[in-house]
């Protein structure tokens, strides 16, 4: 049995074929999850976000006109959901006085992010300003070209390049003082 293309699956799903939709989501789950994890750095949050993305796709797929790639479209939903989750996380910084001391204590604080190879690099990237972080993760993490990244971020290609430049500069200072 030959695998149906995304386009065919989307078409079947849009006409109400639940099985086709499930196959489509199953096929893309891994990629969406990996993307979510790259932004969030915590497995459980990434799983939650991925589930949200899947549900959003379920609601929206009938309106998807197939004039774009399904993957790109799903990416955009995942990107927005992940950045929303990140912003929600920033809003819920605990304000207990002892926690405030912890924040003051600074970089020595234990990091709650997943402990995995390259954890330091991830932490540095995630500490960048939001747009620089998005640009770096899209271009380097998701291996997109600048035009694709610009489309996902909703800005021009030039802006992406500029953000990348700023991010590299900031990272160079922090990551390698070796020269």
């Amino acid at each position: 049995m030959t695998a149906a293309t995304d386009r065919e699956l989307v078409a079947s799903a849009a006409s109400g074929d639940a099985a086709a939709f499930t196959r489509l989501i199953d096929r893309h789950y891994e990629r969406i999850y990996r993307m979510a994890w790259r932004w969030l750095g915590r497995r459980e949050e990434a799983e939650d976000v991925t589930q949200d993305v899947c549900v959003k796709i379920a609601h929206a797929i009938r309106g998807f006109r197939a004039d774009a790639e399904f993957a790109t479209w799903a990416y955009r939903i995942a990107f927005n959901t992940a950045t929303d989750a990140l912003r929600a996380r920033q809003r819920t910084v605990p304000t207990d006085p002892s926690e405030v001391m912890g924040l003051i204590d600074g970089p020595g604080q234990p990091s709650p992010e997943d402990d995995i190879m390259g954890a330091e690099l991830w932490a540095e990237v995630r500490a960048l300003p939001a747009q620089q972080r998005d640009a770096v993760l899209l271009v380097y993490g998701e291996d997109m070209n600048h035009a694709e990244a610009a489309e996902v971020m909703g800005c021009t290609e030039k802006t992406v390049s500029w953000h990348l430049h700023a991010a590299r500069k900031a990272l160079r200072v922090r990551l390698e003082a070796v020269g």
Partner: peptide, 20 residues
Amino acid sequence: VPAPRAEARKTALDAATQAF
């Protein structure tokens, strides 16, 4: 990237199918 748990994946797929 740490692999997602199988049950999380299943929950997500179920939820999405149901929503669909």
